[in-house]
Design a protein around this nucleic acid. Sequence first.
DNA 1: AAGTGGTCTAGACCACCTA
DNA 2: AGGTGGTCTAGACCACTTT
Lengths: 247, 247
Amino acid sequence: MKKISEIDRESYEPAYAQLVKIIKQQIASGDFLPGSQLPSESSLCRSFGISPMTVRRAINLLLEQDIVKTIQGRGTFVKGLDLGNLQFDLRELKTLFQDKELNRVKILETRIVSAQENIARKLEISTGKRVIFLRRLMFRESDPLLYHIEYLKYDPKSPIVEAQMDVTSLTGLFQSSEKSDIKKGILTISATLLEAQEAALLNAKESSPAMRLEHTFFSFDNRTVSFGWFIFPAEKINFSAKVGIWD
Amino acid sequence: MKKISEIDRESYEPAYAQLVKIIKQQIASGDFLPGSQLPSESSLCRSFGISPMTVRRAINLLLEQDIVKTIQGRGTFVKGLDLGNLQFDLRELKTLFQDKELNRVKILETRIVSAQENIARKLEISTGKRVIFLRRLMFRESDPLLYHIEYLKYDPKSPIVEAQMDVTSLTGLFQSSEKSDIKKGILTISATLLEAQEAALLNAKESSPAMRLEHTFFSFDNRTVSFGWFIFPAEKINFSAKVGIWD
DNA sequence: AAGTGGTCTAGACCACCTA
DNA sequence: AGGTGGTCTAGACCACTTT
């Protein structure tokens, strides 16, 4: 039960974080192979001179990172790779919206239209009702990158329309926007081909591959307030994810 | 400082999980709007009759779920939606590989070839060196769904080749595979068009949209062991993600 | 000075598994 | 019975922000 490494109590880095690092490093260097059992929690307490709660917290973090799995009464074991838990995030998109100066959003069209059948169904209203129709184009250094189409529910009785439009604005969505009227949303990503109009706007070839990110947003009373989709050419952006132990 | 709800100490559900539910429910029902401040941790301790560590754990979970943000010395605040932290997972793919009986994997080709320049660069070997070339097709109920191409580094001196092939098998990757030789991997998802051969195999039309999931895997000594990609027609699969508070 | 989040302790008790 | 993970306590101390 030798200590490979020790917790530095003077460090600004919390003990649990240090323990996470140590264990990850030991796994990465092959001290513990996938499938093998880690030292028990009480053993780790003794080895590192820290209390059970601190060890537990470190283990919980390793669990979240999908590096380890626990079986009550048996022990803690090193996991192998598992693509099923792979997660792609949209940080790349987020960074695009960070710098407001460099990246502008151009509103191509905004008007009130009668909802067609498919839109009405998505917004949970009756066909023909009025909805707000939006078309936006977003640039990265004057290069068109993202085309956005959105249908917003229009309620003249409670005209929070401007607030909705602000909230649903691109910059608002990709920053941590406070005070929004939106409680939840569901997004779906898929592959598609650029139509003529889209290709022209995005400065790309017609029928070339593109990613389509469809969204539906709901208000705090669980009613649909917005439906739409983003289109971006495949060669201009893509998403990456890492699995396993990266250091 | 009225209690809206209480912790049930008889429940099998841990106190911290119950507190998470209660706070989420209160936010979802509009008791705390985005931007507003939550009761302090000590206040929550008193209100619910639980200890600081238990409250802390609940807050940490809300932080992970991106529902709340904390500022030391100021308080805990409700966050609005933030698509920047949106995460897509491949659970849908994973479930496909769960039932081994229904979904079979057909190996179309497996042979040793000389590495072309681009493959050699990916595998960090010199051009012309021998690599293992694999082509697989995966079915969902006799419907071709996934086409997989992979190049494996071939090292005759330490012929762990079979182990590698097993590890890199589709079923192995999407289940929680123990004892793999792979330490980490990086995946990139993008949109593409089906080429003639791909379309024929996948029972789809040529030049129709498809998702491409490229992967590179590394061994425990940080050397590249595998490079390849999955192709699946857009209409047969897509990925969803939820944001905000869903219950 | 008082209130806030953040870390940590040194035990306790429970549920589960193996022997 | 003894070891394992899992939860929880009732305090302590610290860093930070506001008053």
